Amino acid sequence: MLLKRLSVRLEAFQLPLTKALSKAGSLGLGGVEFDAAGELSPEELSQTGRRHLRHAIRSQELNFTGIGFLSRHGFEEIDRLERRVSQAVKVLALAAELGAPVVVGQLGTIPTDDDSPAALAFHDAVTRLAREAERLGTRYAASIGPNQPSELADLFAKTGGFGLAVAYDPALLLVRGEDAYGGVRTLHDHLASIRLKDAVRSGIAVSGYREVPLGEGEVDWESFLGALEEVNYQGSLTLAPDQQGGGPDAVAASAAFVQRLI
Score class of each variant (00 low, 15 high):
143 S>N: 14
146 P>N: 13
146 P>D: 14
147 N>G: 11
149 P>E: 02
151 E>C: 10
151 E>P: 01
156 F>G: 04
156 F>A: 00
158 K>I: 07
160 G>W: 00
160 G>P: 02
160 G>K: 02
162 F>S: 09
164 L>H: 08
165 A>L: 00
167 A>L: 09
169 D>W: 09
171 A>I: 06
172 L>C: 09
172 L>I: 06
175 V>E: 13
175 V>Q: 15
176 R>W: 07
182 G>E: 04
183 G>P: 05
185 R>T: 03
185 R>E: 00
187 L>W: 07
188 H>S: 08
189 D>Q: 08
189 D>A: 03
191 L>P: 05
192 A>V: 02
194 I>D: 12
194 I>L: 15
195 R>D: 10
196 L>Q: 09
196 L>W: 05
198 D>A: 10
200 V>Q: 12
200 V>S: 13
204 I>P: 11
207 S>A: 15
207 S>D: 15
209 Y>F: 15
213 P>S: 05
213 P>M: 07
214 L>I: 07
215 G>K: 04
216 E>F: 11
217 G>M: 12
220 D>G: 06
221 W>P: 03
223 S>E: 15
223 S>R: 14
226 G>L: 06
226 G>A: 07
234 Q>H: 08
236 S>A: 15
236 S>C: 11
238 T>K: 10
238 T>D: 14
240 A>I: 06
241 P>W: 07
241 P>S: 05
242 D>Y: 11
243 Q>W: 13
244 Q>A: 12
244 Q>N: 15
245 G>S: 15
247 G>A: 08
247 G>T: 01
247 G>F: 02
251 V>L: 06
251 V>Y: 03
253 A>D: 09
254 S>V: 04
254 S>Y: 04
258 V>F: 03
259 Q>D: 04
260 R>C: 07
261 L>T: 03
261 L>V: 00
